[in-house]
Design a protein around this nucleic acid. Structure first.
Length: 572
DNA sequence: GCCGTTTTCGGCCCGACTGTTTTCAGTCG
């Protein structure tokens, strides 16, 4: 059983325990054990002593062992025997938790969504103590709408929504500051809702305006401190708006950025010194509330260096932030973008427009990398056109003295493993990227042969979007990423973090291993338009999640060092 | 169920909101 399946089983056990009415800390312990596994970068095979992992104790370790060896858990089997499986579906209805489900089961014999509907329709629910007419109505409504707790949605979808909401917030005069928070701010690839923290003195007005300007499906809750709505989009995305004052804004942002586990650890730390953290600030021993103007100031108060949102997953970041600055890459480290397209292949803007936009971003360099000749659908460059483009790019480069436009190519690795141009053509370019755009369904052996051939070419410096995945759309091809990292290390080839919101390839999970193997990384937007260049921020955010240090990212390097990398002889 | 440079037992982050209730339980993040 793989790690993901084991985590699922642990979560299922937790759900059963919740319905059983177990102590909520016991329930949380199973979730936390799953989280601990997820946060551990090692594969199941590499973990020798489970109970040494923080959050996994004797009991959960035993369950995990059993899942690994037998493929099933006796703890889970006993729960399945005791509690009808259909009750788990009820947990997905908004407003129903373990306690209420337990009551419905024990007192009304509810065992499934269908039997719940039946008792609701017969008016039996509102007679139960603790239930009432409104609860019964809401349950029926939820059953009829097939309304469920939010599913997880991919970051490209949520980022678009978030940007639309941000535009609305920006237009409101009564808002002095706002930020997205939650999983999106931590750059998780999937999330179930959106969170915004808003600084305002007039939350009534802001709530009203939001309800007016946003497409709202339903108001889930509305109070002085927050408003929760379901958007009228195909996925009925849930959005939380939290209102803060000037004083509480930083604490509020910290709190709603999470992660939950990060917050728990911070609060524990505060508790040890008899202080109490809430979203409003830090309550001192004498009851006074201390507030902060920035998150950095908050961390500093506890003797910690700043922890960027994407590093707040409740791993070991608090310990590391005690010892010194985290030395994680940040956006200001980026000196250029090494993967972009122009109208010469399938981009929407001319070389001059792309170059000027990169220059305007304050970058010191950028590299033009249109598609190669075999990628006909993208108007890939014939050898003649490529040679012409090199001249054209040089002319544009000449117009700048504080910016360099390199000439490169994104060259296809063909299905048989050969490359799209001969070496004598590649030798004319500053920077050669190789990538796969065809025959995705080949078996792993053939895919790896293609990638290995590319890495062993003396001119190929980077493998772009190494897995070929599209978030929320397709999985990518059958690449053995561990092996690719090994080959990249042997040959001195860099691997890409494609920063496009549709890709994020390699993922943060793999990038940590890339860095550990001593392989260099390029964070590129693969821009086909001016707008796409902005995804560099998302790329950096993803790199931070992976714990990437700036010195391991080639496009943080000054131009001379980058040129050295472009020209160095590869190792074989 | 997990955890401990004061602890191996007694805690476990903290608050908003709703619906059910006359002071709070349950759900949620």
């Amino acid at each position: 059983m793989n790690k993901k399946q084991i985590i699922n089983q642990l979560d299922t056990i937790a759900l059963y325990l919740e319905i059983k009415g177990e102590n909520s800390f016991k329930v949380a312990a199973y979730h936390r054990a799953g989280l601990a596994l997820e946060n551990d970068p090692r594969s199941m095979a590499d973990i020798d002593d489970l109970s040494k992992i923080k959050g996994i104790g004797k009991s959960t370790a035993q369950v995990i062992e059993e899942l690994m060896t037998r493929g099933e858990s006796s703890v889970l089997a006993a729960l399945e025997k005791e509690i009808p499986y259909g009750l788990l579906d009820l947990l997905r209805l908004p407003g129903l938790g373990g306690k209420k489900i337990g009551k419905l089961y024990r007192e009304l014999g509810v065992t499934s969504l269908d039997s719940l509907r039946d008792v609701c329709e017969h008016g039996k629910v509102h007679a139960l103590a603790g239930f009432g007419k409104k609860t019964e109505e809401h349950l029926l409504q939820a059953l009829n709408d097939q309304q469920q707790r939010p599913i997880v949605l991919p970051i490209p979808y949520m980022l678009d929504l978030s940007e639309k909401i941000a535009r609305v917030l920006k237009s409101m005069e009564s808002i002095s500051r706002f930020s997205h928070a939650g999983s999106l701010r931590r750059a998780k690839e999937k999330m179930k809702d959106l969170d915004f923290v808003i600084e305002t003195t007039d939350h009534e007005n802001v709530s009203e305006a939001l309800l007016e300007k946003l497409p709202i499906h339903e108001i889930v809750g509305r109070g002085d401190a927050k408003m929760t709505v379901l958007l009228d989009d195909p996925n009925r995305v849930s959005v939380d708006f939290r209102f803060a004052t000037v004083d509480s804004y930083a604490s509020m942002l910290l709190h709603f950025t999470g992660s939950k586990e990060h917050n728990v650890q911070l609060r524990r730390m505060a508790k040890e010194r008899n202080e109490k953290i809430s979203e409003y600030g830090v309550e001192m021993e004498d009851g006074t509330m201390r507030t902060f103007t920035t998150e950095a100031e908050f961390y500093r108060y506890f003797g910690l260096n700043f922890i960027p949102p994407q590093a707040r997953e409740g791993k070991d970041e608090l310990d590391r932030a005690k010892d010194g600055p985290l030395n994680l890459i940040q956006f200001s480290d980026i000196k250029g973008d090494l993967h972009m397209h122009s109208t010469w292949s399938d981009g929407s803007h001319t070389i001059a427009e792309m170059a000027e936009a990169m220059h305007a971003k304050g970058y010191a360099y950028a590299c033009l990398t249109d598609h190669s000749r075999s990628l006909r659908v993208a108007n890939g460059l014939s050898t003649e056109r490529l040679l012409k483009q090199i001249d054209e790019a040089a002319k544009i480069d000449d117009q700048y003295d504080d910016f360099t436009l390199f000439s490169g190519i994104e060259m296809d690795i063909l299905p048989d493993g050969s490359l799209d141009y001969p070496d004598e053509v590649l030798s004319r370019l500053d920077f050669v990227i190789a990538s796969i755009h065809s025959s995705f369904s080949q078996d792993q052996k053939q895919i790896m042969k293609r990638l290995e051939n590319a890495c062993r070419n003396p001119y190929v410096r980077l493998i772009a979007h190494p897995t070929g995945r599209m978030l929320g759309k397709r999985k990518g091809y059958a690449v053995d990423v561990n092996r690719l990292i090994q080959i990249a290390a042997e040959t001195g080839t860099a691997l890409e973090l494609n920063a496009s919101r549709f890709r994020l390839d390699l993922s943060s999970e793999w990038l940590g291993k890339v860095q550990d193997a001593g392989v260099k990384i390029a964070i590129d937007t693969d821009s086909h338009s001016l707008k796409m260049m902005d995804d560099m921020k998302l790329g950096v955010a993803t790199a931070i999640r992976a714990g990437i240090k700036p010195e391991n990212v080639i496009n943080t390097w000054p131009i001379d060092r980058l040129k050295q990398f472009f020209n160095q002889k590869k190792k074989f």
